[in-house]
Design a protein around this nucleic acid. Sequence first.
DNA 1: CGTCTATATGTCAACATTGACATAGATATC
DNA 2: GATATCTATGTCAATGTTGACATATAGACG
Lengths: 197, 197
Amino acid sequence: MRTLGYAVLGLLSREELSGYDLKRWMERPLGYFWSARHSQIYPELARLEEEGLVAHTLVEQSGKPDKKVYRITAEGLRALEDWVTQPPGSRPVRDELTLKAYSVWLTDKEKAARLFREEGLQHEGRLAHYEDLRAWMEGEHQDEMRDPASPWFATYATLRRGIGYEKEYAEWCRWMADSMQEREPVEAPKNSEASGK
Amino acid sequence: MRTLGYAVLGLLSREELSGYDLKRWMERPLGYFWSARHSQIYPELARLEEEGLVAHTLVEQSGKPDKKVYRITAEGLRALEDWVTQPPGSRPVRDELTLKAYSVWLTDKEKAARLFREEGLQHEGRLAHYEDLRAWMEGEHQDEMRDPASPWFATYATLRRGIGYEKEYAEWCRWMADSMQEREPVEAPKNSEASGK
DNA sequence: CGTCTATATGTCAACATTGACATAGATATC
DNA sequence: GATATCTATGTCAATGTTGACATATAGACG
């Protein structure tokens, strides 16, 4: 089955949600490691329902359009549980910034330094946001987040992954920017290349 | 233009290559951060040639089929240089293992521990491979890899990124596996959560 | 002689994903 | 009254990517 389906099941295993709710989860917290647009989510829900892994109830609302609230079925839960411990299919990495770094020797150092400085700030921003979430969790869910049988633990695990990832990426960006900006090596005059600056 | 095109230009800016050579680069060293199959590469080369960014010469070989050797044009080089310092379009992250972690609270702890242990080993393996490459570079290209105007610097930069990434990922996998395997908390009776460590 | 692997270049159908288009009720703002 | 935003659900064409199919030469191995 499509990985997207398991992303949806993973959310529905925690609570009942409408397609619109799922869309928002796929933007914010879950979207940090698996994202999808609503144009993928609605057809996916239909497919999952056809396969008997989810079911929905129409909920009439006043003040808002009606909605379809989806829940996971017993069969869906079984499928999700099975999937979790299967080794993931290896997806190729595709990192555009690293690809740019591969050709960075061709370009203006100052421009490149600015690029990596800027990208580094974005990773630091995301890192700060993750750190906030972690602090909030430590305050509100200190017990559950240490219990591997609690969804809070699982959420915390993904958060830890995000923190490590962004920290490492930000550091690399800083190193890149510094390397591009470095004045002519002060101590080692290479051979020709006389006096820096 | 398609990012794949810039990946191809990035390789051709360093040396002339056939489609088959490009395919192999996209498997091994470049494929660590941008990969493509030959079924994408051959049409891409045709498009790049149509746009005047690359050109090819037919090279007849004995003992092997003939081949088309591609080189980057002046226009292609300009396009590549421009692209390098443009901010990358933000691609959504899609990490299947982290997605599995999000639902790990549902499953058998031992099975999950095995999964993360195994995945961690794979990241450690890649890390060891990258460290080998770095050691080789330190030996063979110690000067060029410190010069931001040298392709060796750019290659080293991507290698550094790979090392940081795999190290971080392997550590997280270890932490996950340990967390799933932990015996009932020995020292802290859960609610109190006293004593640090 | 048959089979496998490496070199070498291509095409094509299927699937995943995006961005735009489409509709509609209700509230908030100008 | 007009416009924008949020909720809510959908479709569709275009693009990106994969895996299979297709063909051909040459060397290695049994």
